[in-house]
Design a binder for these strands. Structure first.
Lengths: 210, 210
DNA sequence: CCGGATCCGGGTTGATACTG
DNA sequence: CAGTATCAACCCGGATCCGG
């Protein structure tokens, strides 16, 4: 991208991360940790391969991303955020918070990846009963299941199913996101096609708003 | 901008404000309040007039900007942020914080406008002695002077000179920004060409970091 | 399969000129 | 003052290809 050539912190930041796709690449690396090139491609549906290669080079040059040869026997290169890149977490969080209301009226045919759920989970959900035994919620909404679990007060996500989930949430992404963020009531979502197996209290334990 | 077509809050936010120039237009409206078209042009050196018109239309459509006929006798249209647009303040702040270190090594020929100083001032400076009488610092670094003043605990900026400033800061933007944010010591900046008239304590009262 | 490079058509941006 | 018109240059998206 051409520089804005303005002596302003915002303009300088946008010189680095204002390009198309750039912040979405950062999102992938924030949510998934070190990624292979093809992991990034799968998490960024619609990106052209030359653009991904270009952006990774630019981000590396800017000190946001580091490229590393994975230790044997993996034999592939991994892309990961530097500490400077991880500092973009706050930017991604604020943009995500601002964009969250736009998820209320979803367009059809929007792509979806299960791990994107980690964004609202990390920034909205809290364990309101850290004194209680930890809980696990399995979410089935994208192509792959993912798991939400409490770990001494924090709420984490990880890919894959849970061994013994306290609850299982199944349905379209808008319903799952609506319920998790508390925008949609459980009964309301059920009427729209969401399936929830488990104690509603399990859900309330991590939902925002009180 | 083409939509990313991803069911993700970050992607949805970038669908609206991810276009080139868009967040800089929001910056102008955040820092200066309601603006005329030509005010925006002067605050966005380098923008093409057709792009400014396009972006304003898109932002209006997205509910971020409102266009209003100014009350007589002004007889001009004013552009201002809606409440949704003002909510982008947090986004601009985080991006500005992230970009601030990039101001340390300035390129020559970067454009500068005095009112851009309001960004670091709003987000970094605090009045550490709200019990004391208010103070006023005049800054002369761009084409026009601007004034920093404490108002019961908060630090504000306004365009124009101060009537009876407690201090006057004169010099190139990198020096002024460096001193205000505390990255540069006053003596260090003086050696580099900054002029400071007044009690150094006046400066310390609002500088960040203790 | 992985990690790109290359090529091409079309859309967007940027600079300038012009207008109600 | 607040844009529109025009046009060249550049960037993006999609497809294809290629060396490990």
């Amino acid at each position: 991208m051409r520089s804005y050539r303005q002596y302003c912190a915002l303009a300088k930041a946008l010189d680095v991360v204002g390009d198309r796709w750039t912040l979405l690449i950062v999102r992938e690396l924030l949510l998934r940790g070190p990624c292979r090139y093809t992991d990034l491609q799968s998490g960024l549906p619609g990106i052209a391969t030359n653009l991904l290669a270009d952006r990774l080079r630019e981000l590396e040059q800017a000190g946001v991303v580091r490229r590393e040869a994975a230790p044997p026997p993996i034999a592939t290169t991994l892309f990961q955020l530097t500490s400077r890149g991880e500092a973009l977490d706050a930017v991604v969080e604020q943009l995500g918070r601002w964009g969250a209301p736009l998820l209320a009226k979803p367009r059809r045919n929007d792509a979806f990846r299960s791990h994107w759920l980690a964004l609202p989970v990390r920034h909205c959900l809290r364990d309101h009963r850290p004194d209680q035994p930890p809980i696990t919620i399995e979410v089935r909404t994208g192509a792959e299941p993912m798991t939400i679990e409490t770990v001494n007060g924090a709420v984490r996500t990880r890919p894959g199913a849970a061994r013994t989930p306290d609850a299982v949430l199944t349905g379209a992404p808008p319903l799952v996101v609506g319920v998790l963020t508390g925008r949609l009531g459980l009964e309301e979502a059920r009427a729209a096609g969401l399936q929830y197996a488990g104690d509603p209290e399990t859900l309330r334990r991590v939902q925002p708003g009180r």
